[in-house]
Design a protein around this nucleic acid. Structure first.
Lengths: 282, 282
DNA sequence: TCGTTATATGAAATTTTATTTCGTGAATTT
DNA sequence: AAATTCACGAAATAAAATTTCATATAACGA
């Protein structure tokens, strides 16, 4: 805890009921305070605005504004004590939601650093670099990552394919061969459609890269190369958003790595494409 | 120097005389800023208050208050070691790339905290909550965010629409009315297709929410509600990946906020849908 | 016990701070 | 040269913080 917060909790036994309500809220939601107004804090703590301004004076801070700035500074230093962001409260305002989303997403991306294996990543980059055709497949939330991958790798000149439709996608698999790569994306690694598609692709000799949770799922076991995403344990309402960030981070890494290695020889085409877009679209 | 100050000094050559006066004062007296008011800074820099508030927007920060808090936080952190992650080296290994991607993405999400305005966010949530129909539109990289939004809001029971095809999408717009919301997504805020579509939607009375860079772009100016994303200045190879993260963070926030507010009354349907998926798909 | 005084609190008024609007003049384009 | 765009500050407005004031309740003394 920061000095200011310590001071508050030390003094708390001399507080009146109203003051205690305020200090409770502050101690439990310290990181939100710098972006709040007296009115908001008053509402949250169920006291009047006047009591809030009086409170900060009581704990020896000149004004509410100073209080906010001081708190922001102190909290910046010691970072990481985030009061249970995993539980979304019914009464949370959109801005609080925003702060939680930011936290959850940053955290998810951080966790990817722990799950993704260096060697597997290198193998994946090699495989894609040498590939003629790339097929991505994912359903539901993972379709977004697949979609994103298509946009990116198409720009690099790859023959890329992805379609949400299982049957259409299936009809394209027989054209794959040993030179091609099939990238399966699934959080759980158990999604039937993805597994089925993967088996067919494998039977045609395509190399299988799985972007899936670090877990002994069917997809994880059967893939040639495993790019593991972390299992982000959280409230079910935000579980999918965090995991999508991890998938995208993996895709981004593949894209940037490939770009870096083969980019030079197609930089003019890349720029040409971008120029066309700018000229025609704005 | 902190990130924010670096950003200011980098941009300083595009500044007008008035803006330069402000940036000079800020760069020379950074530690004083968090405790100053717009009027004080205006007096010190010998400009008007209006110019001060406009200045912070120009450098990509949503409000003067946010600016002060951000600066206070940054200055509290000693010597923020700025390993230059922006420049990708030819010799970088995939794993080094990965670390940079992680850094860039986390950073992009952080910057969104500076650009997104609390009030606009609240207005957006209100608008969407009261809407019957939602239409998302974005092209290129921004299409991913639109796609993602569709998946999310469909789950909440909204009538949602998005299609990459301009002409198809256009044919759907006449069915919009005052009760509906059109969400335009564009980094630059200049994309012709998006602007055209927005104008048509507006003519039918739909409320316009823009998810676009904090900048005086046509889209930014014409929208009813502006959810500003930061201008992530970086290597062109990674610019798009970072900006997409910011868009998704905004979408996530909308989704979680709406869920929280209207979620209860449809929780059973939400779970039912999820159960169907689990039963049929795995 | 009753009246008096001190204390805590919120509502409302006031002051301060931030943002937006509007008009002017300079610069740029047509 | 006319028209348009742009930057800017003054003034209006909106929002946020603080103070004032009235009231209720607790504490105290007769």
């Amino acid at each position: 805890m920061t000095k200011l917060l310590v001071r508050i909790s030390e003094q708390s036994r001399q507080f009146s009921e109203t003051e205690k309500k305020i200090s409770d809220y502050i101690l439990n939601h310290a990181e939100l305070i710098p972006n709040m107004t007296t009115k908001e804090l008053a509402t949250k703590a169920d006291v009047s605005e006047a009591s809030v301004t009086r409170f900060v004076k009581k704990i020896g801070v000149g004004s509410f504004k100073t209080f906010k700035i001081t708190l922001a500074k102190e909290m910046a230093v010691k970072e990481s004590f985030i009061t249970d962001f995993s539980i979304l409260q019914k009464k949370d305002t959109p801005y609080e939601m925003f702060q939680k989303v930011v936290h959850v997403n940053k955290n998810a991306i951080d966790m990817t650093m722990e799950s993704l294996d260096k060697k597997e990543l290198e193998a994946a980059v090699e495989a894609i670099k040498g590939a003629k055709k790339l097929v991505f497949y994912g359903v539901g939330g993972s379709a977004i990552a697949a979609q994103d991958a298509v946009v990116k790798f198409a720009k690099l000149g790859f023959e890329v394919e992805f379609n949400m439709d299982f049957h259409y996608m299936l009809s394209r698999i027989p054209y794959l061969n040993e030179n091609d790569v099939f990238i399966a994306i699934s959080m759980s690694g158990k999604t039937k459609d993805v597994l089925d598609m993967m088996h067919v692709a494998k039977s045609y000799g395509a190399k299988i890269i799985a972007i899936t949770n670090l877990d002994k799922s069917p997809l994880y076991k059967k893939a040639d190369i495993r790019l593991a995403t972390p299992t982000v344990e959280a409230d079910f309402r935000i579980a999918s958003i965090a995991s999508r960030m991890t998938q995208l981070t993996v895709i981004d890494t593949l894209y940037v790595s490939i770009f870096n290695q083969i980019g030079e020889r197609m930089l003019d085409k890349f720029h040409a494409a971008r120029d066309h877009v700018i000229r025609l679209r704005r």
